[in-house]
Design a protein around this nucleic acid. Sequence first.
RNA 1: AGGGAGUUAGCUCAGUUGGUAGAGCGCCACCCUUACAAGGUGGAUGUCGCAGGUUCGAAUCCUGUACUCCCUACCA
Length: 894
Amino acid sequence: MSEQLSDRYNPQEVEDKIYQWWESSGFFKAQDQSTKPPFSVILPPPNVTGFLHMGHALDHTIQDVLIRWKRMSGFNALWLPGTDHAGIATQSVVERELKKIGETRTHLGREKFLEKVWEWKHTYGDRIYKQMRRLGDSCDWDRAVFTLDENVSQSVRKVFVSLFKKGWIYRGQRLVNWSGPLETAISDLEVEHKSVKGSMYHIKYPLESGKGFLIVATTRPETLLGDVAVAVHPEDSRYSSLIGQKVRLPLTHRTIPIIADTYVDQEFGSGVVKITPAHDFNDYKVGKRHELPLINILDRQCRLNEQAGEAYQGLSVSEGRKKILENLKAQELLEKEEPHVHSVGHCSRSGAVVEPFLSEQWFVKTENLATPAKRVVESGTIRFNPESWTKTYLHWMNIIEDWCISRQLWWGHRIPAWHCQSCQHIMVEENAPSRCEKCQSSELVQDEDVLDTWFSSALWPFSTMGWPLENETQKTFYPTSVLVTGHDIIFFWVARMIMMGLEFKRDVPFREIIIHGLVRDSQGRKMSKSLNNSIDPVELIEKHGADALRFTLMALTASGRDLKFSEQRLEGYRNFMNKIWNATRFSLQNLVDFEVPSAGIHALPSKAHLSPYDQWIIAKTGDVEAAVQSGLDSHRFSDAANALYKFIWNEFCDWYIEFIKPIMSGEKTLEKQTTQLVLAQTLNRIMRLLHPFAPFITEELYQKLPIRNKACIVDSFPTIGNDKEWLQFANAQAAFEIDLIKETISAIRNIRGENRIKPGEKISVRLAPKDEIVQKIIGNNRTVIEVLGRVGDLIIGEEGNLSKCAVAPVVLGSSKLVVVVPLEGLVDIEEEIKRLEKTLEKLKKDIAGLSGRLNNENFIKNAAEDVVEADRILLQQAQAQASSLDEALMRLRN
RNA sequence: AGGGAGUUAGCUCAGUUGGUAGAGCGCCACCCUUACAAGGUGGAUGUCGCAGGUUCGAAUCCUGUACUCCCUACCA
């Protein structure tokens, strides 16, 4: 207690120290068995390769606020952390590292390469955990899980085998998004569509009959080598006679049929489409419908293959395109070329153009899994917040397609399937079989592919808890309470967790889903590496402190909508942290001689003996407790944050501390002791209420408070329910008194400000109360009015002579007083007259509006009584004020 | 093209059963008044995208419209 607080809050001096203390004290740990009710959240696992970005910062802050709040509210709160092996991302990172030393993946071979990746993981894998600690994430670190941990891998194998045995996993040839450089199928999520300026080429396909050409428009002339048909719309009169005939495919010796399909848009291009089923998703469907063959002209690196013909084999797609165009031109088959902008899928990892590529892949049949997953959302067993995402979710589930789960990578869960080399039989087992069950051959080779990363993510809610083993963790914490995530992965992750949870745990994985927005840059763009517009949260933490960042995110995340991040706003909340620091510093200076009474709050005299300031701040404490509670209950975090901000700054700091300064600087009377107790108790509640939002500063300050327990993080969270003993000292009556005093002081300050009276200059003020109650109130609060209004000479009595005076009527309900400030020698009277006229004009406008409404019979008839009554009071107040001003103006002019 | 969202003060955004518009930052004026200049006090600022409608009353509900954005799909 003896140490001095600096006059600025310095987060750097506080955060690491506090975090280490929390962690070493075991405050983050949840109990597998406990009498407390459970509350559990699983962390959406960040990539091991990842750095903490603003999206995480938002996502994690929401979760940490919930966890800290519930922990303080008496729950056995578990926040289960983990990281994702992130197949492609990690593999590419390590490959890049290898390239620097002139090494390649293929040269190393699978086993050696995987060793390198594991090395990398062991070196950098908990980088993101360190960053999470900077943010203040209160995870139960002892339980941290990695998706390639043995028990998670076991879950993955068990699920795969089970689904396979049910016939819900199958192998098939399909068109998939393919990344040439990575030589793997990639998920839709890893495809970025970019607008590209290309060309539309109009190519002549000669009719077999020799009578002319069909003009085919395409952006990808090189794929004509894989054409198996050209299609026209069945009702297109231009071409109907040609349907069934053939065309000669340019640059080849093949002839292909002219087919009719409604997929063709007659309006677009020439109305003739080349059909390349092996290299276009739509053509693939058309090809299926017409039972056309598939000609794959690309190899795994997306180079033209032998099917493309000798002239082109080995060329890249763009080289091939160039050469094809040259050859077409030479044969005068290229009719024209025009500029054309279209969107092209790019691999988010390698940047290469994604090719639709025909390959053998593993698929999950989603039909049977999707039905129950839809039902639990429809029935409300799982609730989305905001609720509007329900619709999106159900829409997606209705159009769900089979899920391609194989990836041609090395880093990941290798598919537990073994191919018999002698009879080609495929065996799917959890553990490697030694002999083929069909032909008994021992020549078995495990499938080369690994599983899509989302496959293991789908099991996350229970694989992290030790499933398939049965244990207390799952009994206590599954289903989890809340899932917090962004809307961009509802389909890829949320939906799949629901499907897998229902299938393998026979219960939903979580009861509620909080969907938050995306953090965008100040121009509303998505933060991305390519735009180089990312803001590093760790840098912000170093600059302004974790609490300021957290509070900013919570204040901005109102309605689950995307948010534009502004550093200016962050600075505002950094200032708020400093304000709290200094308010506490001041309070502690005034509590140096305070001894906590052994009777605790029972040492307080009866309500009647508390100062109105104390009664008032206790009442406001109750209000803010209620507001925070309701904000957190409804997940309207910004409501809770704003309520705290206003309470602490605009009520506690601006008024309460100012009110009690005279008492604090005075003798150690009973009144002072009482106020000290109220101050100490209020500070204690401020720290606890604010703790989930700003954990570091509140813990640091809490530890310096005269009234405290062991740690803020594990103290109880104040609510109007559990804080009754304290809140009973609140007095609503005091509110009127305080409001009147505040209004009076504001009126004096307004006169000072408008008349440019220097803040340091003390002035004379006359207060003329219009009834006894007001008289009594201002009498009782004389000192406060003098100090806060900087009044040297305060007279309570009649208005007296108003000439050369500034006048401000204060009206509150039916009570009224007039503030009179003699201005002689201080200021130009004309200025004051102008000021009053301006105020009066505004008042008259108000009066006109209000009386207009109150004179409207329909308003009186239809509006709620309290609304009418409120307007009446407003009108009376305005009129009272106006008449005072009128009178004052008249007397001033004389 | 389909789905969703937005349009409120110079900027970023609140505004939850319809009852005379709010915050932060910025701006102007005066101040280092012994917690805090990352501060204090006072002040200015909005036909709540546009047009209709319902209503005594609309930023709020309905219809239309303009513009912006996001997601999904994609024009061969």
